[in-house]
């Protein structure tokens, strides 16, 4: 089931925004070249907030140990030891609202 997260107009290009939906862990929403991306606001390496990181060259950069995850595929670069890839939630922009399926996809 898709959950409504926020107004899509609030998500500016090149930025990462932290959003919480009742009953779910915080998620991060990013917009890059117009496309929306929704992912857990928790770096798979050491649980730090990815919303406190930034987007660079099409990658989410974790601001703590500088792991980089490709937007879309989630492939990790500059990988700290033991850091897996990042998973994304399925999301869409429906009538100016961001909706996402907040279950970790396999």
């Amino acid at each position: 089931m898709m959950i409504e997260l926020c107004d899509s107009g609030a998500i500016r290009d090149g930025e990462i925004t932290r959003v919480t939906a009742p009953g779910f862990p915080a998620v991060a929403i990013a917009r890059h070249n117009g496309a929306l991306y929704v992912f857990p606001d928790r770096c798979p390496h050491a649980d730090e907030s990815l919303a406190e990181g930034w987007i660079e060259d099409g990658r989410v950069v974790c601001g703590v140990h500088f792991a980089e995850f490709e937007l879309g595929s989630g492939e990790v670069h500059n990988r700290p030891v033991g850091c897996p890839n990042l998973s994304f939630f399925r999301c869409e922009d429906r009538d100016g609202k961001v909706f996402a399926t907040l279950a970790v996809e396999a």
């Binding site: 390496h45 649980d47 730090e48 950069v61 601001g63 703590v64 140990h65 500088f66």
Partner: peptide
């Protein structure tokens, strides 16, 4: 992106602020 201490992994942004530790 910042500076990470080799001792315990404390990580500082280029603004000098502590961004995190070794995690968890």
């Amino acid at each position: 992106r910042g500076f990470i201490c080799n001792y315990h992994g404390w990580s500082f942004g280029i603004d000098g602020a502590l961004r995190g530790t070794d995690g968890k």
